[in-house]
Design a protein around this nucleic acid. Sequence first.
DNA 1: CATAGTTTGATGTGATCACAAATGGCAAAA
DNA 2: TTTTGCCATTTGTGATCACATCAAACTATG
Lengths: 217, 217
Amino acid sequence: MIQSQRTTADAATAAHDRVFRALRTRIMHGDIAPGEALTLRGIGREFDVSMTPAREAVRRLVAEGALFLSSSGRVSTPELSNERIEELAALRALLEVELASRALPRAHMALIDRLQTINTSVAEMITKRDAVGYIRTNLEFHRTLYLRAQAPAMLAIAETVWLQLGPTMRALYGRLRRTEPPHNHRLIIAALKAGDEPGLRLAVRSDVTQGLHLLTS
Amino acid sequence: MIQSQRTTADAATAAHDRVFRALRTRIMHGDIAPGEALTLRGIGREFDVSMTPAREAVRRLVAEGALFLSSSGRVSTPELSNERIEELAALRALLEVELASRALPRAHMALIDRLQTINTSVAEMITKRDAVGYIRTNLEFHRTLYLRAQAPAMLAIAETVWLQLGPTMRALYGRLRRTEPPHNHRLIIAALKAGDEPGLRLAVRSDVTQGLHLLTS
DNA sequence: CATAGTTTGATGTGATCACAAATGGCAAAA
DNA sequence: TTTTGCCATTTGTGATCACATCAAACTATG
């Protein structure tokens, strides 16, 4: 087979973008362990593309902080120091409290219903001890809320923070053995219903930083 | 000439990284106007590399939001809407107030002296009406302060925001005809000297958002 | 003169190749 | 047994090419 590339105007996305999106979702959801190595040829083989699109996807992910590039050019998921984890958690708190606060005046009943539905899934993942599923549904909960903030740049930055924390969160929650339903999520929903901004800010901050406390202990 | 690539262990940085850094600095400092188009072959010709490193550099910059990628793959600097500018300014305020606050307890006299020196350059650029020089020295002022916060992830995100605002700031300050010295910078320095955290937060916020007000008016 | 169709040049994309460096395993020596 | 040196394989990098697409200039037609 020679030169059977997809055309750019194809219904399907360009190859490098397809690879990029797939890897990004995988990393954000914690499918890949911290420190796990990736090779360009390996990525190319998996997605049935040459090294070129694989390299471009990797470059984008490195730029987002989702992948770590060693001095010799080898790529792997990052192994975060405790200081870095604390800093990223602080960033989440800073950004997500602001996003939630901006979403509050726009949060109508339909949104709250949807959040409650997602929250059911989150609880289900916890009881099933499905770490990846928990991370995925938990992020979906947060993203659904923040989309209402109408702040795309801020949301994009929050997502890159999630991305950097992805592999570490997986390793963290994978070790965790708890079955409590998501208490803070219910506080968030309650504050949304009540239009209670200080309560909402506090609930979001607690939800975001609770994972950190589990680590330092 | 065939296969005369630099080796990765060379003293010189890899080609794609060299191109990336050069373009990034250019964009952040406002050397490139909003909406200006770039071509891979053009970049390659300018830096004397092939399309491959040029493409990788562009991919990284697109991932950082420094460049806009049209649906047909053409790249250009972004033309920001007013909403986007306001959002990015809000992000700057959020992040930089936090960074300054974290730097405050670590700010010793040597740092303050250096900030004052940089501030002299800033004032000089203003009187010379050198827009690019003003942006460069102004960012140097902020970066010098925030480096003391010991929060690399947060500083990195603040820099990507600067990057996105680069071309627009240039267009903005280029139109601007003012010769006032940087008042807010002096407030920042005074607050640092006094160890006055609320004053510092306010001064940083004012400094960051004042540019916005010049736009909306 | 204006507008629609056409064509030519420019541009991005992905595949493939040659090369240098790094990595890991293996063997030989202490 | 441990350590050191060497070699083969793997891996990233950059150049080059063929191709599809796009944009702009140009031409023909009304």
